[in-house]
Design a protein around this nucleic acid. Structure first.
Lengths: 153, 153
DNA sequence: CGCATATCGTCTGTTCGACAGATTACTTCT
DNA sequence: AGAAGTAATCTGTCGAACAGACGATATGCG
């Protein structure tokens, strides 16, 4: 049942978000990338790929497209010239803000059969579970973040 | 965050269940099929595919394999000779029971960062949300089934 | 009844995306 | 300095998903 629930919800989420992010390259995938870059700011391209569970070779052409659309930029990491830091452009931030709003609404619709209180509980539990189950993640950072200590930046 | 949580959890769930269902054909997919047949008993092959969000042409060769392994059987639906009813064999039930046990354990590990009480809440909320969001499902039945879920339990 | 249309399951062909492996550039260790 | 390791890219291959056609049956309508 757990597997089925997750599968169904993710599929429905994807369908709705696909809709909400049709201006973005690569649809849902694109939204996840842009969102991760802006909100989580992973240090490098590899870290970004790891966080999203995307193959590194795939990440390459995803980012190519995003650079071509002036949504993201690749910059040399000054401390390691092999690595690239992925930075959102102003345009990228603005576009994401719009899409985020539509996604938020889509998500509320997705959970509309739950009372508002339960929606918040579900979100919180999911995030906590996912953070705890994510592979390779720095466990200390993960725990700190989900304990709500992340307001510093 | 919701999308990310779902993605991560489903990916991790799949990885662990893949492990747990090595004896079954087609790994996770196979487990989902067998589990759906036994526990949900969808009336026809098409209904089964719809429930799992699998393409009908894919379902065909999945079931071929399962029949070949004596885990499931296709029977003529007496009321509609175009349709097939998918029925588990005794062997299929036994195998599923074993796999189910391992899956249950894997799921508990997956959620091990949550206190037991929260795990049950999460499962219940997920199921409710998925049932409500599933496409094509009989909405009345779904709502009735999970009404008042938050208070009881 | 005879015809049109829709549905169930199967089969075929094509396409598209994921992944493995090699490659280049750079870092780090000894 | 040389060896080994890592970041990102490029190339080729393979498999799984989907569209479309088909045979069989069901249903609706005049």
């Amino acid at each position: 049942m757990l597997g089925w629930s997750l599968t169904v919800l993710l599929r429905e989420w994807s369908a709705r978000v696909e809709e909400a992010s049709r201006d973005l390259p690569h649809g849902v995938r694109g939204y996840q990338v842009l969102s991760a870059v802006v909100h989580d700011a992973p240090p490098t391209q590899a870290a970004l790929a790891a966080r999203l569970g995307i193959d590194r070779t795939v990440m390459t052409y995803l980012l190519d497209k995003f650079e071509g659309c002036d949504l993201l930029e690749r910059r040399q990491d000054p401390s390691d010239r092999r690595a690239r830091r992925i930075v959102p452009t102003d345009h990228g931030r603005r576009v994401l803000a719009e899409v985020d709003a539509r996604v938020a609404q889509a998500e509320e619709e997705l959970l509309s059969t739950l009372p508002p209180e339960d929606r918040r509980v579900l979100r919180a539990l999911l995030e906590h579970a996912a953070t705890g189950a994510a592979p390779g993640e720095d466990r200390c950072a993960a725990v700190a973040r989900s304990a709500g200590l992340t307001q510093e930046a």
